[in-house]
Nucleic acid binder design. Structure first.
Length: 939
DNA sequence: GACGTCACG
DNA sequence: GACGTACGTGACGTCT
């Protein structure tokens, strides 16, 4: 191939100084052959390699240079002596790598440009301007936001770590303004790291809003009379000079003569020497191997081999075979959908469903809450594009319009019941739990069934959510009709039973149509990807189990809650007065911002700023610290916080959630929400009712049984640690569980050689840390010790329980290889970021991947128990014992008085044996059971 | 709607 | 140049 003479020259400018900082933080602390730190240099070298490799590519460089900061003393320091004054010195093991950057660049025979008195940003600006003047394109390799000012039609940026191009649209996305106004926005918001002052109280959002409203900085400063918010206005007036200074500091200088002429930056190819020598010297074996293996017949550059195997790892974080597969183009023709208004038409649909043995269905209602919802209509689909809607509960748009022609609800349900209960016809739904409740309310027990939401959850957990609209887009690139486009939104929103039948048919029939297509696409993957066990034995049957629990609800004592609300309100009022008194004036205690100002400015307490908003942290740790130092107001605020939390989230909200028809609270369980396979609970969340403090615990007493009944609670003891002992195969832990020893004391003995309250507590913390994917830093923070001490404890843990470290290593190796983890029952959880080049993303995924098999197996077990419990109770002659709630490792039942002992034994047996017969655990699953008049007394 | 905070396992 | 220090959730109040 000829050299790139015929194409437009394309200059790449590498912001070397900023690159090496990022590389340092994102790569592990590697050392080179000489034992000196070289992680950042390696990252830098790999980046240059990648760039050089794209020489011949469409968008690759024809000219390339690396730009470095020559000195810290620049014209900006003369302008403002505080410029970059806050910046901490770089870490030592990074400083030692700075000179190597120049060596590495020379090894590539790439020009390395630096200029006394100019920052790299300014040099880049000069070159970009000069290149544009000659009609060249320029790509700035950096992610520095200051440089985004330079972007235009000819200039873009490239973030090689995220493998992302940044052009005008990306700038607008980030700043809300085009590149030409970025300088004004930066001047308003300032920059902590460079110590550019900006205007206090103005962050990115406000800054871009102001510039958009007024045009530029000077106009903003001149228009303060038009600004309505008093604080903002005053701040702008007070700090106008700071803003002008900031504007100058962020301005890039592009009038300087070029240190080297543009044409000298041409990239012709990389001579093998001295690159090979450099790679050998540093011991960068991977790159060296590529260089040798990729010898090209046509030229002496490593280009050919690079293109094939140096894929940017960030671009393909998900290993092959774990994605959701290719998009299948479909054509949805909504004109083919039918509105069924005659019994003959209905019978024809039922006959077709019977004939082929499966049918997709969906119900439409007048409300999202399936417990109170009334049926509006039912849609069916038998083939792609062959779907119908059967309205049964539609009314006119208002009280003056007549209801549309439709079949009688009772007739339709009478015809559908045999079909929906026919064991020879598979019913397919999406989030079928909702429909199961709707049909159960009219005496129809839908079976057998498949659920496409659960199919997607079991196949692709971790890769996205599992709503139908999203799945249609993902698998078919099809946009479903939006609910709000049919029913409107906000004040004007109407309920589905008011929607005209033609629009209702298009919307509802499409849902059944898409459900059918999703089923056709997803179902074959169940066997192929080995999730049949978890789907068939855990999640699919759980739909019906949970539907029953939701329908039952739990009785809540409104009078008791109301009284509690009153008591809390009095306490809150008292505390509020005391806090205001101590603060020297009223303010909104619930506003972290105002509270921070009161504590750390008005009262002058010492405390650090935290968070990117620049506001003070006032969380429980910070306030506990102050309270411990004898700051009474901190204790008062903590008490106020606890009481308002209890009142608003529990005593008030729970009363409002009592269903007027049943007098009970019916939560909704999310079956496909938590990535690990746990359930979640919403409207209200009954999985986070207080228990840890005495005050909060009173809320539990509001959960009561019907007269003549008690509430019974059964919970797995230490289930996650038991599973860890089994899965990691740790003999001492397994033995301790078999012998019913106290596991935290036993750990304390192993770790610290003695057992007292302190060592036991610390051992308990360590045990949890293991489950959550440990880091020495995190453990140190929790235990209030140094990182080194934290690391020593972890090392000792691994040494005493070697199974744990091999479990972690094996789990991570598997996850990196496959992109997902599995529970003992085969449940998959995907981790698309497990190989991300971004350290924080990657490490977060690693911790989650260590935890997921354990948390997920625990979820599998309790779900299996739940699926079996109703039948086991009936078989034991206890059909009136009703399972009501699940709280991850706990089940709550309503039990007729006199049946407690027998119910306890049945429940205990089912829960303890939940792994069998699929799995035999090496540890017993102990279950603790208690009961009483209310939930609080059942523990 | 984002953020901070806090309730649970 | 920033982020975030343990995993998984959901709800509320404030502020923009």
């Amino acid at each position: 191939m000829a050299e790139a003479t015929d194409k437009q020259p394309h200059l790449y400018l590498v912001d070397g100084s900023s690159y090496i900082f990022r590389a340092y933080h994102q790569l592990p602390p590697l050392t080179n052959r000489h034992g000196t730190p070289a992680g950042a240099v390696y990252g830098y070298t790999a980046m240059l390699w990648k760039l050089a490799a794209s020489l011949e590519q469409e968008d690759g460089p024809s000219h390339l240079a690396v730009i470095l900061d020559a000195s810290s003393n620049t014209h900006r320091n003369q302008m403002y002596d505080q410029y970059k004054a806050n910046r901490p010195p770089p870490p030592e093991d990074l400083v030692s790598q700075f000179p190597l950057i120049r060596v590495a660049t020379r090894a590539f025979s790439i020009p390395c440009i630096e200029e006394e008195g100019l920052e790299a940003d300014d040099i880049i600006a000069c070159y970009a301007k000069a290149a544009s003047a000659k009609g060249w394109r320029t790509t700035i390799v950096s992610s520095d936001k200051d440089l985004m000012q330079l972007i235009d039609d000819q200039v873009d940026m490239l973030d090689t770590m995220k493998d992302r191009r940044i052009g005008r649209p990306e700038v607008i996305e980030k700043f809300g303004v085009g590149p030409e106004r970025v300088g004004d926005v930066l001047a308003l918001m300032g920059d902590k790291v460079d110590n550019v002052p900006g205007i206090p109280g103005i962050g990115p959002k406000t800054a871009s809003q102001l510039i958009n409203d007024f045009g530029d900085l000077e106009t903003v400063l001149a228009s303060t009379d038009r600004i309505t918010k008093p604080k903002l206005k005053q701040s702008l007036i007070d700090h106008a000079a700071d803003a002008r200074l900031s504007r100058q500091l962020v301005e890039l200088v592009c009038e300087h003569p070029l240190p080297e002429p543009l044409d000298d930056l041409r990239l012709k190819g990389i001579p093998p020497e001295p690159l090979r020598e450099f790679l050998e010297d540093q011991g960068f074996k991977t790159l060296l191997a590529r260089m040798v293996g990729g010898t090209s017949a046509t030229r002496n550059v490593p280009v050919q081999s690079l293109r094939n195997d140096v894929k940017p790892s960030s671009a393909a974080p998900v290993p092959s075979g774990t994605g959701r597969g290719e998009v299948e183009r479909i054509t949805v023709d909504r004109t083919l959908y039918q509105t069924v208004t005659t019994l003959d038409a209905l019978d024809a649909w039922i006959a077709e469903a019977r004939n082929q043995g499966f049918v997709a269905l969906d119900t439409e209602t007048d409300c999202i809450d399936c417990i109170v919802a009334k049926l509006a209509g039912i849609s069916l689909a038998t083939q792609p594009n062959k779907a119908c809607y059967i309205p049964v509960g539609h009314s006119g748009a208002d009280m003056f319009s007549a209801a549309p022609d439709q079949l009688a609800k009772a007739d339709v349900l009478a015809r559908l019941k045999p079909l929906l209960e026919d064991p020879a016809v598979l019913k397919i739904g999406h989030n079928l739990k909702y429909d199961l409740v709707m049909f159960a309310k009219v005496g129809i027990a839908v079976a057998p069934y498949d659920d496409t939401m659960l199919l997607s959850f079991n196949l692709d957990a971790g890769l996205g959510s599992h709503g139908m609209d999203e799945l249609a887009k993902l698998h078919f690139e099809h946009e479903c009709i939006a609910f709000k486009s049919v029913c409107g939104t906000g004040q004007k929103q109407i309920t589905f039973d008011k929607v005209p039948l033609d629009a209702a048919t298009e919307y509802a029939a499409e849902d059944a149509d898409i459900t059918l297509r999703l089923w056709q696409r997803l179902k074959p993957r169940v066997a192929a990807e080995h999730v049949a066990q978890v789907y068939e034995m855990v999640d699919r049957p759980l739909s019906a189990t949970v539907a029953r629990m939701e329908q039952r609800g739990v009785k809540v004592d409104r009078g008791y809650l109301s009284k509690l609300s009153g008591t809390f309100a009095d306490e809150i009022a008292k505390l509020e007065a005391q806090v205001h008194e101590a603060a020297g004036g009223p303010f909104t205690i619930g506003s972290p911002q105002q509270l921070g100002q009161v504590l750390f400015e008005r009262l002058g307490l010492k405390g650090g700023r935290k968070g990117k908003s620049g506001s003070y942290s006032t969380d429980v740790n910070e306030l506990e610290r102050l309270a411990g130092e004898g700051v009474d107001v901190a204790r008062l605020v903590l008490d106020w916080r606890q009481l308002t939390k209890l009142k608003t989230t529990y005593t008030d909200a729970l009363q409002a959630q009592i269903n007027p028809d049943t007098g009970r609270v019916h939560t909704s369980y999310g079956l496909a929400m938590a990535q690990t396979g746990r359930l979640s609970s919403t409207d209200p969340n009954l999985q986070n009712i207080p228990i840890r403090t005495e005050l909060g615990r009173q809320i539990r007493d509001a959960f009561v049984a019907e007269p003549g009944h008690v509430l019974m609670s059964a919970d797995y003891s230490q289930i996650e640690l038991r599973l860890a002992a089994h899965m990691a195969d740790v003999p001492q832990l397994k033995e301790a569980f078999r012998a019913k020893e106290d596991i935290h004391s036993m750990t304390a003995e192993e770790l610290f050689g003695s057992v007292d309250r302190d060592t036991r507590n610390r051992a308990k913390t360590v045990n949890f840390a293991i489950l959550y994917g440990i880091s020495s830093w995190g453990l140190a923070g929790r235990l209030g010790i140094s990182r080194e001490e934290g690391k020593a404890i972890i090392d000792r843990y691994f040494e005493r329980f070697p199974g744990i470290s091999s479990y972690i290593n094996d789990t991570l190796a598997f996850a990196r290889e496959q992109g997902f983890t599995r529970t003992l029952f085969g449940r998959k959880t995907h981790f698309p970021n497990i190989r991300s080049p971004q350290m924080n993303l990657r490490q977060g995924s690693e911790r989650a991947a260590i935890n997921a098999p354990i948390q997920g197996t625990s979820a599998d077990l309790i779900k299996r128990a739940m699926n079996r419990i109703d039948a086991a109770l009936s078989k034991a002659g206890l059909p009136d014992v009703r399972m009501l709630l699940q709280v991850h490792d706990e089940l709550v039942f309503e039990v007729p008085k006199g049946q407690e002992e027998r119910a306890a034994e049945v429940v205990r047996a089912v829960m303890s044996g939940a792994a069998e017969p699929a799995i035999t655990l090496d540890v017993p699953l102990d279950v603790e059971v208690g009961w009483g008049e209310h939930w609080g007394a059942a523990h």
